[in-house]
Write a protein that binds this DNA or RNA. Sequence first.
RNA 1: CGGGGUGUAGCGCAGCUUGGUUAGCGCGUCUGACUGGGGGUCAGAAGGUCGGGAGUUCAAAUCUCCCCACCCCGACCA
Length: 517
Amino acid sequence: MPPKPKTAVSPTREENYPEWYQQVIKAADLAENSPVRGCMVIKPWGYAIWENIQRVLDGMFKATGHRNAYFPLFIPKSYLEKEAQHVEGFAKECAVVTHHRLQQGKDGKLVPAGELEEPLVVRPTSETIIGEMYAKWVQSYRDLPILINQWANVVRWELRTRLFLRTTEFLWQEGHTAHATEEEARVETMKMLDVYADFAQNFMAMPVLKGKKTEGERFPGAVDTFCIEAMMQDRKALQSGTSHFLGQNFAKASDIKFLDESGQLRHAWTTSWGVSTRLIGGLVMTHSDDDGLILPPKLAPAHVVIMPITFKAENPGAVLEYCQKLAAELRAQTFAGRAIEVELDARDLRGGDKVWSWVKKGVPIRLEIGPRDMAADSVFMARRDKATNEKAGVPRAQFVASVAGMLQEMQDNLFARAKAYRDANFKVIENEADFRAYFTPPGGAKDESDGPTPIHGGFAIAHFNGDKAIEEKIRQELAVTVRCIPLPGQVSGADEAGKCIFTGQPSPQRVVWAKAY
RNA sequence: CGGGGUGUAGCGCAGCUUGGUUAGCGCGUCUGACUGGGGGUCAGAAGGUCGGGAGUUCAAAUCUCCCCACCCCGACCA
């Protein structure tokens, strides 16, 4: 029997970060791998987080004038072929439906039959089919803008997958808008980028950088791709949301045309923007520790868990009743615009198991309530953002009155902690030698073929003149890429001109380099 | 699709080189008792086509051949 681990999750982040990530997901019961390779089963606790993400974002989309609709899962192959770069970008990872029926074969097994005249592609994204519909809906400038979002699943046949971060099928939302002018479409692109940044920082408590992608990292078919980039605890970057200015590329491919005020026939300008279940991976890797998940209160499926301690109570029923009454009191409180969510866990489990199960699930506040607490009319409280054994008795009334404030404080603490970590691992780099040293792990391991490399590096802020060949060379040699060209004011010192650290050529500003998911 | 590796109980593994009675171990699971505010102890129980097929042999988890699946690395990616 191996020695009992000191932490609820093993290995620890330090020991093996990728494995730790998997173990946190398992310990928190968020999701598991499915029988279908590369696809995941999102379990209730994980799905509840997604539902909270959906609820908040959906409200933000509605508030910015968007409406939900739903477009088909299947896209005729010919649609995908309309935009050249788009084809190139997605063709290699499409699931294709070629038949519509199964028949019993000679050996009794089912074989596909009824071949389709035109194969259908399972959507990897919906620009093409939505464009096709918009072309019908738009005749006049009076029909614009169209501001639509859809919540859907998409399939990208990835070769290497990781729960939440990259799966063959994933859930997301994709906004698709069409506008009469370039200016309006550009404003829309930036507006939604701001919505994502706002959501990431104020709800996920995940600091993000807003920036623009380089040509190589751009969405296939887009004119400009903007992104929010977050730093995980292994100091790698996670692209957490994207907003694309598509110019007239898709409007031309799908023939979205309208007559303007002067009677001129013009192509519309379109945008698209999305975030996915990958955000849950970001949530895990931003806040969690070696005891499991830590949830920002605003997205936690439960804010408070109450565990009645009834084993040596003379009257267990009274303790339970006290807990139920407390739960009702708490539910009457609001936090961040919704009722406080309370779990009352009266399962017949040993105390330790029960407590640790909620620690691992990341519930912000845990209450253990036994006869002694009831007698004192108090609660015995622990917070997930503090040490597990740091518990204290608090008078019940005081706790109820302060719970919302405490949750907000935890939300703020998580953000502050994540931001401090990110800022501590931001480094302005002025020459190539320092750059290479920064991204070379201790011990000098080149890649991860001999196991995970120690946590190292971070976000490097360095001048770069945009040479694609150099970007590719750095990617090959160091597995480091330009995560984004930060928008003005996002990174202090990034906006000034200088010289590219690789070529010495003039560079208009510094860009953000990092290893990425 | 190239290189490497692994398939034995729910999970992790031993056994295989040197074939030999009812195939083991750890964890987990279930039941009960004692317990219990840092995940406890004891007793008992369930659970296996040894990835599949063919062959060699008196005898195959073990040797041979074929097939399948999965994992890791590379190329590609939200």
